[in-house]
Amino acid sequence: MSDFDPRIGRVMGVYALALGVLYLLFGLMEIVGVGGSGTDPIPIPGDLFGGLAILVVAATYLNGVRGLFRGEHVGLSFLIGALFLSAVFGVLYLLLMGADGLSYLIGSSDEFAALADFRPEIWFFLLSLPLAYQVWKLTREVTW
């Protein structure tokens, strides 16, 4: 028996699957360090631990897909956990971008490479916001 409307669950499941696969691909690229310069639309830094961290986000999204398709709470749990991690890393890299901008403003850095700082984690965080809105609608009644 499903805990919420499986039709909504299926839509969220597809979205979570897409995000999970994206995180997985970009996580692997960060680990391998395939790169991507600051002029690319999505620069991919060679960052071993950063790559491993977003593989964890990918695993959390992907773990929830089956539960979401069945409309089960367990799927929603993984989805909320993954959205939380997406937000942590998205906001983290946005803050780091702000810190780089501040360094440039006070003159301790020669250039503000805003585009190079715009890591995939920020894009994915923005992409996860519609899903977060859907989850919020589903869990409005839930208390802490």
Binding site: L52, A53, I80
Partner: peptide, 22 residues
């Protein structure tokens, strides 16, 4: 809801390490 993920047998420790990295 959150404990299901954060205390997960396989994902619990990787999530902890990822948060520590952040």
């Amino acid at each position: 809801i959150l404990d299901h993920v954060f205390l997960h047998r396989a994902l619990g420790i990787p999530i902890f390490l990822a948060l520590l990295y952040a």
